[in-house]
Each structure stands twice: as C-alpha cells, then as structure tokens.
Computed example of a mutant assay.
Amino acid sequence: MFPIRDHNPSERTPYVTWALIAINVIVFLSYFPSIGGQDRLLMAFYQDWALVPAEASQGREMHTILTSMFLHGGWMHIIGNMLFLYIFGDNLEDQLGHLGYLLFYLASGVAAAFAQMSADPFSQVPMVGASGAIAGV
C-alpha cells in the first residue's frame, strides 16, 4: 500500500523535489510541535494560513491558496505526503526540468484548492496539506 521506491532511474538530481520536502518539513516543524496538541492555538494558526473556502470564495485571504500547500495536520499527514513526493517527484522533475516541475507542482496545488472550493464554497473547515499538489505529481 505504501511505496518505498520506484524502478525509474532519474538522470538529474531532483533539487526541486528535495527543496519542496525541506520547505514542507521546516514549515511543519516551525508550528506543529509547539501548538499541535492545543486545538485552539492550532485552529487560530490555520485561520490565518490554511485555506478556508468560505473566505477565499469571497476574495478574502487569497494568500492561503498558496500557504495551505505547505501546512499539514499531523505527523502521519506530513510523513505520507513527503514519502509520495520523494518517491514520485524525481521522475517528473527529470521529465519537466526543474522550473517546469516547480510550476507544475504549484499549479496542481492551486487547482486542488479551487476544486475544493468549488465542491463546498461556503465551508468554514480549513484545508491544509500538499496532497493536491502531490496528487498532480
């Protein structure tokens, strides 16, 4: 069920994949260990940085379409996302090039955010995670 590797060798070093993993982990470690067990603080943090469809659908808090891609809801959430990014990201980065891959990754995350907003534009539930971007990869 969980991949541990793929059989497609890459010809390039996957610098962008490694950078995305590092950024996701650094951002997660910057907030989750200190406020992860305190629901009120975590929800206040998510209110500012996670995508809340009801806000974004009305043109407010538009920065959260991007920032939500680098937040995660717990240890298994980030570990699973980064595992899949590590396994599959290098092959796509090899095919698209570093800049093309980065743009595709970000575009996939933005598309996932808009898909979530279109499914329930009045939702007050914060959306976090790189899952949409990684699903695109």
Rank of each mutant, 00 (worst) to 15 (best):
V52S: 06
V110Y: 03
L92N: 00
I35A: 07
G129T: 03
Y15C: 01
G97T: 09
I23E: 00
L51E: 11
P33A: 12
Q116H: 11
A54C: 08
G73R: 08
Q58N: 15
S108D: 03
G132W: 08
L51K: 12
Q95P: 00
D90K: 15
T13G: 03
P14M: 04
R12F: 04
F32T: 08
E61D: 15
I35D: 08
T64I: 09
A44K: 14
S123K: 09
H7I: 09
F70T: 01
L41A: 15
M76D: 15
L96W: 06
A56H: 11
D90F: 02
Y101I: 01
V128N: 06
S118M: 07
H98C: 00
W49E: 05
S57C: 11
L85G: 07
R12V: 11
L66W: 12
I4F: 15
Q116I: 14
F28Q: 13
F45Q: 01
S131Y: 03
Q116R: 15
G109Q: 03
G97L: 10
M69H: 08
H98E: 08
Y15T: 00
P33L: 10
T13Y: 13
A44F: 06
E55H: 14
L71V: 04
A112C: 07
S118Y: 03
A54T: 09
M43P: 01
A112P: 07
H72C: 02
G129N: 05
E61M: 12
G109V: 01
R12W: 02
E61I: 01
Q47S: 14
G74M: 02
A56W: 07
V128R: 08
